[in-house]
C-alpha cells in the first residue's frame, strides 16, 4: 500500500507537467521539430527527480543495484534529451542558439540552461571516465553531487523563467519536487549510501 502510494505520487508529480505541456495551445503554432525540442526539455526535467531517489534506493522495488542501474539508464536518457533539445532548437532558430553559446542571448533563462547543460555533460564525463582515470570514489561522488546540484538549479531557473509550453502551476510544483527530491537524498542517512557503495 505504501509502495503503491509512493509510486502514484512520483508518477503524478513527474507525469502531469509533461502531459500538460503536451496540451499547450502554443503547440498548434509550432512545427514538429520545435515541439520535440521543447518536449525533450520538459521530459528531461520530469525524469530528474527520479535520479536522487534511485541513487539512494528510495523507490520501492528499486533498491540497491537495480535502482542504480536505472539511475545510469536515466542518466543516459537525460543526455539524449539534452542533445535532442539543443538540436531541435538549433534547427528551429540557429541564431538564437548561437547567441546562447556565445553568452550574448537577450534571455537570461537560456544562460541557466547552458549552465545546466555544461554541468550535465561534465557529470557524464567524470562518470564514464571514473574507472579509466581511477578517480577515487569519494572524489567522484563529491564532484557528481556538486554537478547534480548545478544541473538541478540551472534547470529549475531555466524552466521557471521561460514563457513556454509548460503550465505554470505544474511547472512550479515540478521545480519544488525536483529540488526536494535532491535535497532529501543529500540528507539520506549515511548508512544508505554506505550500503549502496558496498553493493556497487
Amino acid at each position: 500500500m505504501r509502495a503503491a502510494l509512493i509510486w502514484l505520487a512520483v508518477l503524478v508529480l513527474s507525469a502531469v507537467p509533461v502531459v500538460l505541456s503536451l496540451a499547450s495551445p502554443l503547440l498548434q503554432w509550432r512545427d514538429p521539430v520545435y515541439i520535440a525540442a521543447g518536449a525533450t526539455g520538459v521530459l528531461a526535467m520530469a525524469l530528474m527527480p527520479l535520479q536522487p531517489l534511485l541513487a539512494t534506493g528510495r523507490l520501492p522495488g528499486l533498491g540497491g543495484f537495480r535502482g542504480r542501474r536505472l539511475h545510469r539508464i536515466i542518466g543516459a536518457l537525460l543526455l539524449l534529451c539534452l542533445l535532442l533539445h539543443v538540436a531541435g532548437l538549433w534547427i528551429t532558430s540557429p541564431p538564437d542558439v548561437i547567441d546562447v553559446f556565445l553568452l550574448r542571448s537577450p534571455t537570461p533563462f537560456s544562460t541557466w540552461g547552458l549552465l545546466a547543460m555544461v554541468a550535465l555533460l561534465l557529470s557524464a564525463a567524470i562518470t564514464a571516465l571514473r574507472k579509466p582515470l581511477r578517480l577515487r570514489w569519494r572524489l567522484w561522488r563529491v564532484a557528481h553531487l556538486g554537478l547534480a546540484a548545478v544541473v538541478i538549479g540551472g534547470t529549475v531557473a531555466h524552466a521557471l523563467l521561460i514563457e513556454g509550453t509548460m503550465e505554470p502551476v505544474s511547472k512550479a510544483l515540478l521545480s519544488l519536487w525536483l529540488t526536494a527530491a535532491f535535497a532529501g537524498s543529500l540528507a539520506a542517512p549515511l548508512r544508505h549510501r554506505a550500503s549502496a557503495r558496498r553493493q556497487g
Partner: peptide, 8 residues
C-alpha cells in the same frame, strides 16, 4: 505574435 524561444 505568440511566445517563442521563451518570450512573446
Amino acid at each position: 505574435i505568440v511566445p517563442a524561444f521563451g518570450q512573446a
